[in-house]
Design a binder for these strands. Structure first.
Lengths: 110, 110
DNA sequence: TAACCAGGATACGTTCTGGTAACCGGATGA
DNA sequence: TCATCCGGTTACCAGAACGTATCCTGGTTA
């Protein structure tokens, strides 16, 4: 087992999938169920549409989130966790538990 | 519970502590015991001293790693996990487990 | 007619991250 | 005398990440 290569380090790859500034927050919101783009955007008032979109696209490319486009007007697009994305939630929850114990006064998962 | 703020999201903070390109690899190596700087550097042949040092300093600032300086010549400095750092290893291991199941053909923790 | 809606695209600028290369101190061995 | 050792610093640079502002579509509403 050599993980002297960061590219082949499974932990590194996974962390990389979560390392976007808003990704953990997005995943935790979607854990409660599908949300439309505009809903997510309103929940995260300090992120621009462009950045939110970038984060969602990356999560989509990594197979954690899926996009549902409903042909309507005005447009309506839902984002939801994939099975893979849902399987990551317990991991996030463990990270949250760790933080609860080891970090100071920080807000945590519900 | 509002984690609409990425700064207050425990998961985000923790991911941020792990998000350096070489940090998971470093932590996993140190999980086996203290290593001297040069040993670590030789294990990670593709990283420069400068970058390795940056990663170690950040891990140190986050309280995951501690530096032991032995006054000698040539210099001798050891890096080891702190208690907090060790407590993170099971979390990394769970991330690794997740990756083993959900990612393709990727090298994993020992 | 004009403003507005949701979801996005685009241009542009700044900051952060990682990378290279050269250098240092001062004991030791050839 | 000179290179070598280890841990570290410095200057400099490229690219990624993140941010702001503006624009678009094409139905609906005022």
């Amino acid at each position: 087992m050599t993980y002297n290569d960061f590219e082949n380090c499974a932990v590194n790859i996974t962390i990389g999938m979560l390392a976007g500034k808003w990704k953990p927050v997005i995943l935790q919101h979607l854990a409660a169920g599908e949300l439309r783009f505009i809903q997510l955007w309103r929940l995260l008032p300090r992120v621009s549409k462009k950045v939110l979109l970038e984060q969602l696209r990356q999560l989509e490319n990594d197979g954690l989130v899926q996009r549902h486009e409903h042909i309507k007007f005005p447009p309506e697009v839902g984002y939801a966790l994939t099975v893979k994305g849902e399987s990551l939630i317990p991991v996030l929850r463990q990270i949250d538990q760790w933080a609860r114990v080891n970090l100071g006064d920080v807000k945590v998962m519900p």
